[in-house]
Amino acid sequence: MGVLFNSFEEWKKECEGKGLPLFQAVLDFEVNQKGKKEEDIWAGLDEAYQVMKEAVQSGLKEEMNSYSGMINNGAKKVMNFPKTVLSPEFQKLVARALAAKEVNSCMGRVVAAPTAGASGILPGTMVTLQEIHDISDRKIYEALLIGAGVALILEKRASIAGAVGGCQAETGSAAAMASAGITYCLGGSNDQIFNAVAITIQCMLGLVCDPVAGLVEIPCVVRNASAAAIANSSAQIALADVSPVIPVDECVDAMGEVGQSMEARYKETAQGGLAATPTGRAISKRVLIQDIEVLEDEDGED
């Protein structure tokens, strides 16, 4: 594509008109608009996926304690717990999404996908998908390209930033990227891939960004696990050709509308929701710096 499409409808038309797979249009966009070489793009995707896998591994192996103490090796506990709720695969999915996100909270290296706050969702879903279905790395990179295309449209028509659109914009976008990738890797049609995005948005719609003490920890970490689960349930539904009824582009617009009308206290300001609970406030008082100088001068210093 010469220019980035503004909608899923355009993306689909472009690909079906030219007989291209969905990922090819995203690749062409990056080559034409960003002046990148195709081989560099594949290398970049490879690097990103390696960092994602590494984050999953570190989160399950190394000590993961955050400065605030709120994050405390949760992923390892889930991974090693003897009872599985659904299946060992589900347990691993949850543990891996938690693991990569805990690495983020504990100052480890991650891929912001699309943001740092949602950095556990693609690692958790893609690593688990690849393991269960024996999918090639190349196919995973194609899925990441499709995910990037999804996020580019979401950024354009709604938002991918918690401060602008709430948590739905961060973990919701990541889950939509992941469900598109899963559906693609399992042989879904273009319509099914986009239906997976629509269903994911329907499930994540309205989620507020209310981080305790303003830190990217509670509830961000557990929401990476739930978003990974929703990405999978949405793909399961879409692959069976169940219709989302509301078309994907309209779902995206709904997400934008909900994000816009959300009050500021639900947009990363730590003034509402969980952050404003008595416990949330107490943690904030303990963790954040209280010894702050206030200068007489209206303009601050100087």
């Binding site: 990056e30 504990c106 290296r109 912001a112 354009k156 920890e217």
Partner: peptide, 22 residues
């Protein structure tokens, strides 16, 4: 300027937040 693929799958960074760390 409009975003690219590696703004969506990236950057590779040290957590927890791009404003506070990177």
């Amino acid at each position: 300027e409009s975003s690219g693929i590696f703004d969506m799958i990236g950057p590779v960074m040290i957590g927890p937040s791009s404003s506070h760390t990177a």
